[in-house]
Design a protein around this nucleic acid. Structure first.
Length: 443
RNA sequence: GGUCCUUUAGCCAAGUGGUAAGGCAACAGACUGCAACUCUGUCACCAUCGGUUCAAAUCCGAUAGGGACCUCCA
């Protein structure tokens, strides 16, 4: 497996810490609203990465968190006179449903900030005790001047970052680059701590949840959107580096942003597209195909044309698969489990930093072979059986959820009657029968 | 101002030194009772300029365009 690593900015051979095991974490959503299509991309990419790693023999342990405490959540809670965690749970449920519609499997671990609070507070105490953080008026900040290796994710020099740093309202910080670990507040949901009543900073949460889930200060893969490189991931690394002298993860992977007609999705532009709306309009598998249609590290442009492109491509695969299965079942031919040689070609492409475009090329190669074989008067049964098995396996690795097609008595009768009426040139009857078969998803 | 990514046909894209995969769309045929599906065919001076090389989309340099990040952000 080859993976692009944001630390080295190169595609590297993936070598896990333990030979047959992979530990992986992707930053999950802050649950203050319904998930938009941009939120889906890292989840789909992670799901694919999980599948590929599993397929090539690794035992993958995958975690993705819910940031269920945040100023925006608290604001919404106050507005609606509800508990912040109630708001979070509502959007977590919606998010889970959205991801399911995109055929994303639930990670084995889905830690929440609110469940990890004691450990987060303890972690901040430890940073203070070791001299990497300081408290001012109940707030706690990480002291950027105490560390040297700041910038390994974003590849920016500390001095340059200081130039770019915006002037902040809190001028008590020793250095404008210092970031909050704990914020004192009694407005809305808050937790008691040795520093003050308040809420934790975003950057500490992920570190602690990773350590809590994996019981380790170093995991294999950490991912998220490229907009999280700085400051979020940079700050995760520096805390872990200060305390444990690790980069938290050996491989940092970042996906590019989704752009709507060339513009970044934002509330102010009013172009935020929710997963549920898109899935309803274009279909879940189709939206997954769309998300995977562009190299994961680059930006993905969403517009009418690119969406239709994805829908047409997926449907082409789906139609060929259905025709293949119907043909085999009509002839009472069972499934077998013989892999076509195309499969290894397919898997190799995915092992090259998830090159889905090239993997899809192999799928289309297979689709063409299937269509050609189906057209023949006398078809090669073992060949078609292996095509069926191979195609299903490919689609499974890419994570599509395909309907299994089994024919019942009614189907057999309909097909027989359809053929008869065509032979007898009773075309009106034939068309009725054909429509029924289409309705049943057999044509 | 700093850091980084990107530019291949109408669209999505593969390709990382030996002279352009695949898909969508379009068009033309074939198949078909009609339609859908399918099959066959057509469709690229690889942003520009310069350099290295026997050989460059691929390496180097410059220019131009598009974009991201620099404490809200997937």
């Amino acid at each position: 497996m080859k993976l692009y690593n944001s630390i080295s900015k190169k595609i590297e051979e993936f070598i896990p810490i333990n030979p047959n095991e992979v530990t992986m974490y992707f930053c999950g959503p802050t649950t203050y609203n319904y998930a938009h299509i941009g939120n889906a991309r890292p989840a789909v990419i992670a799901d694919l990465l999980f599948n590929v790693l599993t397929e090539i023999g690794y035992n993958v342990k995958y975690a993705s968190n819910y940031t269920d405490i945040d100023d925006r959540i608290v604001a919404k809670a106050l507005e609606q006179n509800k508990d912040a965690l109630e708001i979070s749970q509502f959007y977590i449920d919606a998010y889970v449903k959205d991801l399911k519609s995109l055929k994303v499997k639930k990670p084995q671990f889905t830690p929440k900030v609110s469940d990890t609070m004691d450990k987060i507070i303890h972690f901040i105490e430890e940073l203070i005790a070791k001299g990497y953080a300081y408290e001012i008026g109940g707030d706690v900040y990480f002291d950027i001047d105490k560390v040297e290796n700041y910038g390994i994710i974003s590849h920016q020099k500390k001095e340059e970052l200081i130039v770019g740093a915006r002037i902040e309202e809190n001028s008590d910080k020793r250095n404008p680059m210092d970031f909050a670990l704990w914020k004192k507040t009694t407005t809305g949901k808050n937790w008691a701590s040795p520093f003050s009543s308040g809420r934790p900073g975003w950057h500490s949460e992920c570190v602690v949840m990773i350590q809590d889930v994996f019981k380790s200060n170093l995991i294999d893969i950490h991912g998220g959107g490229s907009d999280l490189k700085f400051p979020h991931h940079e700050n995760e690394v520096i805390q872990c580096s200060a305390l444990h002298n690790t980069t938290l993860a050996n491989y940092w992977v970042h996906n590019g942003m989704i752009k709507v007609d060339g513009a970044k999705m934002s509330k102010s532009l009013g172009n935020v597209l929710f997963i549920s709306d898109l899935v309803e309009k274009y279909g879940g598998n189709q939206m997954r195909w769309f998300i995977l249609s562009s190299p994961y590290r680059l930006e993905l442009i969403l517009n009418e044309e690119t969406l239709n492109n994805a829908v047409n491509e997926f449907n082409k695969v789906q139609i060929a698969r259905r025709q293949l299965k119907v043909k085999l079942r009509l002839n009472h031919i069972e499934k077998n489990n013989v892999l076509n040689e195309l499969y290894s070609k397919f898997l190799n492409e995915l092992q090259n930093d998830l090159n889905v475009a090239s993997a899809n090329t192999v799928i289309f190669e297979l689709i063409k072979k299937i269509n050609q074989e189906l057209r023949k008067k006398e078809f090669d049964i073992p060949l078609l059986q292996s095509y069926e098995y191979t195609l299903d396996k490919m689609l499974l690795v890419l994570g599509y959820e395909m309907e299994e097609i089994e024919l019942d008595k009614v189907d057999f009768e309909l097909f027989k009657a359809w053929e008869n009426s065509k032979a007898n040139k009773e075309f009106e009857v034939a068309d009725l029968l054909r429509n029924r078969l289409i309705q049943r998803g057999r044509l």
